[in-house]
């Protein structure tokens, strides 16, 4: 099933050259590993994968070139990264970055507290209750029920 026509996203014109970066990396790796010397070398398949990527990037670029001017990209950076996504995504990455030293529970609680408060627009108390209940449920189900290890961190050891 083909997805319906999508309006161009901001910066779509820059996409083909960007796609050539992983293609070039795969081709370079293929060449380094004798992909051009023998079809059964460790570099042969990386070379093929790189060539397919490069060909596809060229086809994507050609299609974008043909469609240029047909529709203008909608919005700017805000369309690419709306504030809700940026904030929750940022909080998520911050929580992950904190886990090696703060462990699982505190960063997860703070991530849930701030995200629920931000997304629901309701009070802090409600968000705190939801966050605490969620972290407690995860601990009970996964740590105790399934014996799954959670990031321990060094701060509270």
């Amino acid at each position: 099933m083909t997805t319906p026509a999508r309006p161009p996203a901001p910066g779509e014109g820059l996409l083909p050259p960007l796609l050539l970066v992983p293609a070039a990396a795969a081709i370079a790796e293929g060449v380094r590993l004798d992909g051009l010397v023998s079809p059964s070398s460790p570099g042969a398949f990386p070379l093929i994968a790189g060539a397919v990527m490069a060909g596809s990037a060229a086809a994507i670029g050609a299609r974008a070139w043909r469609r240029r001017g047909a529709a203008r990209p909608v919005g700017g950076l805000a369309a690419l990264l709306p504030s809700r996504v940026a904030l929750v995504g940022g909080l998520f990455l911050a929580a992950l970055a904190a886990m090696p030293w703060a462990g699982f529970h505190l960063p997860a609680f703070l991530l849930l507290l701030l995200s629920v408060r931000l997304l629901s627009g309701r009070g802090w108390l409600r968000a705190a209750l939801v966050a605490a209940a969620s972290v407690a449920a995860i601990h009970l189900v996964f740590r105790i029920g399934f014996s799954v290890l959670l990031p321990a961190g060094v701060l509270f050891r």
Binding site: M99, F104, L111, L112, S115, V116, S120, G121, L150, P151
Partner: peptide
């Protein structure tokens, strides 16, 4: 969704860590 999405993100972290206990 305000509760669901953050919870999914947390579960993604828990699930990934569970594979090899590796950050």
């Amino acid at each position: 969704r305000a509760v669901l999405i953050p919870l999914i993100l947390v579960l993604c972290a828990v699930g990934t860590f569970a594979i090899r206990n590796s950050m």
